[in-house]
Amino acid sequence: MALHFKFAAIAATAALMGTSALAQGFPDRQITMIVPFAAGGPTDTVGRLIAEKMSADLGQQIIVENVGGAGGTLGAGQVAEAEADGYTILLHHIGMATSATLYRNLAYKPLDAFEYVGLVTEVPMTLVARQDFEPTDMAGLLTYLKDNAETTTMANAGIGSASHLCGMLFMQAVEAPIVTVPYKGTGPAMTELLGGQIDLMCDQTTNTAEQIKGGTIKAYATTAPARLDIFPDLQTVAEAGLPTMEVGIWHGLYAPKGTPAEATDRLSASLQKALADPDIAAKFGELGTQPVAADQGTPAALKAKLEGEITRWQPIIETAGVYAD
């Protein structure tokens, strides 16, 4: 017990001495990484992998806290209000950019509430269909949709989910009124796709890769800019003539606004070191993704990405007319 009180006293003194003193020894205690999604999900996995590597470099444990709910806005909101001392950080994905439009009364402004640490990874998506769905390839699908869009169904894992975002892009790219069927999460949506209850889905390759390999579903295209290492025969959407459908579920690391630059720089350096680690590359590879290039693991790169993506998604979401608030 005495130890804890001493601990609080040190923290109090550090607060008194101001930011430079704090940052010199940063980090001198455990860091909390908030993942705004449930434990065990793809984002949580990315968070835990990166936290483990960064802990080793920082010499302090980064513990992952899952604050799920409301499409990641609850966890993000919590970090926005957390103490800006570098000991609370946030791992969020593309939802940071889309929530700016999807949620019309968000308690924080995604662009103003955070300091940036760096980009982590960009998970490509794949457009998949039930095994016995008629079209055999992407060209066939596009022809099929010309006449059958209204009887074709497309699953997504709920509003604001990766599969919903990709579905919106797909429907706007092909200009076809496909019937959207929301599910509560990827699991149920994938089950119904496997069971042939529904025709199409576009989801993160993390979720689809094993099913495609197992032949339980078939893939039409990837939304990545280049073909995927694991599926070299799979077309990209650009090759299929739908360049606007290019999308990846990118993940970034943030800290609350006002976090001293010493802290974010230290975190960013550590992140870049982790991204260059071959072990991380291997683990990410199993998820169907790869770490971003080291020069992307920087505050500037993440800031640029977030600003660009907010601008990109605003008209797409507004056209679809779906809001999550």
């Binding site: 449930a38 996995t45 699991g187 094993e210 199993e286």
Partner: peptide, 24 residues
């Protein structure tokens, strides 16, 4: 495919271990 939240946690554990669960 996880049937419930507990199974979803198991999937997470598998993925962290480098095993992506699937039909194979």
């Amino acid at each position: 495919i996880p049937a419930n939240p507990v199974m979803a946690l198991m999937v997470g554990a598998m993925i962290i271990q480098g095993i992506v669960p699937g039909p194979n």
